[in-house]
Measured scan of single mutants.
Amino acid sequence: KLETFPLDVLVNTAAEDLPRGVDPSRKENHLSDEDFKAVFGMTRSAFANLPLWKQQNLKKEKGLF
């Protein structure tokens, strides 16, 4: 399991300012399950079932792209 970080560490943070080991294209993977659901309004599995373009739009909207 990946290390999780608080939302404010990941949202609207440039790649070079992210904690070590965080993939800038997969910031959402480093949210706790609770934060993930609070941000996206759905579970990880529901998010994973969305088309890629919709996932990317949601990530942009939430500052996690």
Rank of each mutant, 00 (worst) to 15 (best):
V22Y: 04
V39C: 13
Q56L: 14
E16A: 10
G63E: 06
A15L: 09
L50T: 04
E16D: 14
A14M: 11
E34W: 08
R44Q: 08
L58Q: 02
R26Q: 14
G63F: 03
F65W: 13
D33E: 14
F65N: 15
E61N: 07
D33T: 04
E28T: 02
A14Y: 03
D8M: 03
L2Y: 15
V39I: 09
R44Y: 04
G41M: 12
L58T: 03
P51S: 07
L52Y: 09
K1E: 10
R26L: 10
P51T: 02
S45E: 14
V39N: 05
S25I: 06
F5Y: 15
A46F: 04
N57Q: 15
M42V: 07
L52N: 15
P6Q: 09
T43P: 09
L50E: 06
S32C: 09
L31T: 02
F40L: 02
E28K: 01
A38G: 10
L2C: 06
D17H: 06
K60S: 12
T4D: 06
E28G: 03
V39P: 00
D23M: 02
L7S: 06
A48E: 12
V9H: 11
P6H: 08
T4N: 06
G21T: 10
G63H: 07
E3Q: 13
N49R: 13
A14V: 08
P24W: 04
F36G: 01
P24A: 10
F5R: 08
H30E: 05
H30I: 14
W53R: 10
D17M: 11
D35L: 00
E28V: 02
N29Y: 09
T43E: 15
Q55V: 01
F36D: 04
L2M: 15
Q55D: 00
K1M: 12
P19T: 06
E34A: 13
W53P: 09
R20F: 12
K27R: 15
F40T: 02
E34N: 08
N12D: 12
G41A: 09
A15F: 07
D35V: 02
G41C: 13
F36N: 00
K1V: 05
Q56W: 07
L64F: 12
R26T: 13
G41W: 00
G41S: 11
S45C: 11
K54Q: 11
